[in-house]
Design a protein around this nucleic acid. Sequence first.
RNA 1: GUUUCCGUAGCUCAGUAGGAUAGAGCGACCGCCUCCUAAGCGGUAGGCCGUGGGUUCGACUCCCGCCGGGAACACCA
Length: 557
Amino acid sequence: MNRIQEIKDRIRGEVIQALEKAKATDALTFETIPAFAIEVPRDKNHGDFAVNVAMLLAKQAGRPTREIAQTVQKNLEEELPWLTKLEIAGPGFLNFFVEPSYFHPVLTAILAEDQAYGRSLNGAGQKVQIEFVSANPTGLLHMGNARGAALGDSLGNLMAAAGYKVSREYYINDAGNQVENFGKSLEARYLEQLGQPFEFPEDGYHGEDIVDTVKNIIAAEGDRFLHMESALRREFMIQLGLKEKLANIRKTLGEFGVQYDVWFSEQSLHDSGEVLETINDMKEKDLLFEQDGALWLRGTAFGGEKDEVMVRANGVPTYFAGDIAYHRNKFRRGFDLLINIWGADHHGHVARMKGAMGALGYDPDHLQVILMQLVRLLKGGDIVKMSKRSGEYVTLTELMEEVGRDAARFFFVMRSADSQMDFDLDLAKSQSADNPVYYVQYAHARIHSLLKMAAGEVIDPDKVRLELLQEPAEIALIRKLAELPEEILQAAQAMEPHRMPRYAMELAAQFHSFYTDCRCLVEDDELRKARLLLSDATRITLRNVLSLIGVSAPERM
RNA sequence: GUUUCCGUAGCUCAGUAGGAUAGAGCGACCGCCUCCUAAGCGGUAGGCCGUGGGUUCGACUCCCGCCGGGAACACCA
């Protein structure tokens, strides 16, 4: 049940009807009804819903805004039983005050819908693919990947709740120079471990995890790669190393609560010939040209900053060529919408990828890229330089050990993707008990304990006298509960998962106030049942929101 | 230099399809447990929304300039 939307639709209809009536009777003159807003005012004194149509009509109608508002009011249906009051305020707002009991049925709906409360069919089953994290499998997952994982997974949950068919995908960069470099680094460590002379590559991967990977390889395969040709040895190293790294990434993400539907290999696009096919197709469309022995894309022809190399002079396609083939592959799989979550350091890639898709005949707007600002790590008040090459970074595993999965996810999702965030590790640790996530979880645990105490009490939702819930704290809580479906829709539509933690905190706050103001386990049977039902509805709603964020809803704390 | 994100309370951040007196958490200060979990509640203090213009009934929100910070501008990915 989405009561908020119902009321908005109703108000919209009433206002439009009133305007047309006013126009027909020459009470107002205007050409078209402007797209007016029905918003929930911040200030409760301004009612439940405010309509700004009078201000928007001022110019067309050539009359003072408050006068227009009055005319609208006069032309509204006389009997609107769900309203308690309609005021004209400020510059000409029409403030609608909704009968509080009008929201009460939401409670029984929540109990009936349970896990489904908040969900809708708005996305109409459209297929959406979300690609996120896609970290190079040459190291461990770090803080930045953690942010991407939390955001991507929550966005997936949100879109699914809003009625989209969601597929989560991880693109494995298992081709290209970095993989060669990875192989060289592994080989060097391999030789080192086995006491052989070795030379560590100039810009190799210095992280300790590479050493661990090699140790694992030696444990499983021994020294059988020692006496073979270097090129072949590297191939083995790469194969085994990628496998080990990928397994680790998969395991870590699983521990973080992220499950993917598809793990897509970049190499497979080269093996299947799709990269070449894509390049040939682009050649046929005259999108490419040759220069200095390389094959270039006419980037400037479709919105790009400059031309881009597709195939190097040495005949090897670039990452960009592979990525174009990849995105074409996605479209070919029939997704209606592709969402990529990329680090801000890839922002230069957005325009050219969209441009390339457009050039290949796909709608660039069906590819949405969420640019996530990078995470800086503060330790002891200093910024820690993080780089995979140097091996200096805090891993996702370490983060979970230090602040916990729930806190980490809540923290990452709480911030909008485009805010740069400084993650102060010391603060996160020391504040762990004050982290907002506990505030929300505590509300859930409190309700659980309350319901446990009332165990045995049989409550038939249909027979509960909801009209007994009239205290301001009760009304406010019910009202907040009613907002969930709308919140989910808006967050999904805007692709902004960070709204959910905010809502969770607001809901928890409303519950805590209610809990303090209104005693649940009272003598009065009717009132007790009503309040228990309200508490139970809150429990369900909190749990549903937390699950969208990927945070657990504990029964005890 | 070009592109892009950010600049809001002491700190970390919300709020922007333009709305009324700008919000939350943490921190600070003052109150509240013989009573369902005080990881809670109520209250107080704290702001020229970086800055200067413009657009209009109205700008934290949109446009332009400037200042400050991050990021990207490879035959790397």
